[in-house]
Amino acid sequence: NIFRVLGDFSHLASIFILLHKIQQLKSCSGISFKSQVLYMLVYITRYLDLPWTSSPYNFIFKVLFISSELYIIYLMARAYKPTNDPNLDTFHVEFLLGFAGLLALLFPYKYTILEVFWAFSIWLESVAILPQLFMLQRTGEAEAMTAHYIAALGMYRALYIPNWIYRYFSEPTHKVDTIAVTAGILQTILYSDFFWIYYTKVMRGEKFKLP
């Protein structure tokens, strides 16, 4: 459905915006390396089924997400390392890993490796933006491209919510995936504050600056 496709393309767009920002400005300043590593972990643990992915659509997106994330990490850790300031990127990711690990181990749909890792990736994704938002809060402002990146990334999961509602009514089984939906809503709530400032400032041509 349209929400799902818009969501996936928003996700893809966010990655292109981030790559464009890093290469255009020759700098990864303002980008949280910790969040990027968490996203890498999200993709690896969620796409363990990559070799068995039957849909070409999903297969292509999975490969694109994994490879582009690897490239972003390479750019941040090697090519543009001097522009990456670890002193601003101080969020304690062990809390996020503990949160996702605990929920994945306590409430997976099944106790199989794939299911536990899948649940872990869903919960981890829901909070993986926190180091980035924390860094934004410390610097108090962001370049326009960084703000566009975060907005597109947040929109992706927000668009999955109407997708789930649409699927609930349009598919005869009326399935609700409690893990994905709960985590998706949590993820979108975490962005809400950012969305508000993005909407009131950046979309009106102003700089992204915290009040």
Partner: peptide, 10 residues
């Protein structure tokens, strides 16, 4: 099977 529906998502 709750999970199958969403396993076809990204």
């Amino acid at each position: 099977e709750a999970t199958e529906a969403v396993k076809d998502e990204l």
